[in-house]
């Protein structure tokens, strides 16, 4: 599966909706980009971009939730977004998944060959349809992509990847919280998303199930080639899973750094603890 080819990079994803700003950027030779010059690209960014925010703001009435966010995320990166509650991290995810529109600024998503949107979100709650058997719930992830026997086959395959192949014909109500969340993960992954947005998906799980789910998430992310955006308030989880962590504070990106540690990472290693401390200092205004 080719996520992005160079060909689509050159033509805009949706030509009709191109903004004046984007058009100016496209028609101007790189040497004369001022004043539309993009921020200096990050050093290791030689991969394709999965999505980018350009000066994105979101206001609710007078309240500015996101303030002029610039963010480029290369394809295949596992990025964690941390912040206190109400800092705008969930809004960022809602913008990314199209559940909400920015007040100003542009948001570019790299879409598939036919311009299809394969951005998936996993919510804090499993949000399974209680009236559909497990396999049918996973097939919801293939809406508009596959039907019938093909959809069934794909959903059974992904269910066995999350270790629930034998529960395909059961109702969601008989599963445990962790199992339901695994079904939700299977539903999000069954269509091979390009971007998987995770809105504190492990927040409601107990500590042990949580660690189990983190391992599952990490191994599936390593197998498949999707970009993962994990919103969390758990700093330890963020540093354990992500390639890159951004901290959002008062609607702005307060911290943006890479976590160049080898995988698999060991919970409670001194390296992780040091990074965790650094992030907590930023969040609570401590000095380093």
């Amino acid at each position: 599966m080719s996520v992005i080819t160079l060909d689509q990079q050159t033509k805009p994803a949706r030509p009709v909706k191109e903004t004046a700003e984007a058009r100016a950027l496209r028609e101007t030779p790189p040497g004369q980009w001022f004043p539309y010059a993009a921020p200096k690209p990050r050093d290791q960014d030689n991969r394709d971009v999965a999505f980018s925010f350009r000066g994105v703001s979101r206001k609710f009435g007078d309240k500015t939730v996101l303030d002029n966010i610039d963010l480029d995320v290369p394809a295949g990166q596992f990025i964690a977004v941390i912040g206190k509650s109400g800092c705008g991290k969930s809004t960022l995810l809602r913008l990314l998944t199209g559940l909400d529109k920015p007040t100003s600024g542009t948001l570019t998503l790299n879409k598939g060959a036919e311009g299809e949107n394969r951005t998936r979100i996993m919510f804090q709650e499993p949000r399974l349809l209680p009236w559909a058997k497990i396999a049918r719930n996973v097939e919801v992830g293939l809406t508009g992509i596959a039907k019938g026997a093909e959809a069934r086959e794909k959903s059974l395959a992904i269910l066995s990847e999350v270790g629930l192949a034998d529960r395909a014909e059961e109702w969601p109500s008989v599963l445990s919280g962790g199992q339901r969340q695994r079904v939700a993960l299977a539903r999000a992954l069954v269509a091979h998303p390009y971007i998987l947005a995770l809105d504190e998906p492990l927040g409601a799980l107990d500590a042990l199930t949580r660690i189990e789910m983190q391992h599952l998430l990490e191994s599936i992310w390593q197998q498949q080639t999707f970009t993962a955006v994990l919103v969390t308030h758990d700093v330890a989880e963020a540093v354990a899973l992500a390639d890159r962590v951004i901290v959002i504070d008062h609607g702005r990106i307060a911290l943006d750094f890479d976590i160049p540690l080898e995988r698999p990472r060991r919970h409670g290693s001194p390296e992780l603890a040091r990074l965790e401390g650094k992030i907590l200092d930023t969040l609570f205004g401590g000095s380093d």
């Binding site: 199209g98 559940l99 949107n117 919510f123 949000r127 919801v140 809406t143 508009g144 539903r187």
Partner: peptide, 20 residues
């Protein structure tokens, strides 16, 4: 929340009605 989930997964209005 289920309706929102259906929308995110690209269900049409008819599908949303009959499935959710």
């Amino acid at each position: 929340q289920l309706v929102e989930m259906g929308r995110v997964y690209g269900m049409s209005r008819t599908t949303l009605f009959f499935r959710v």
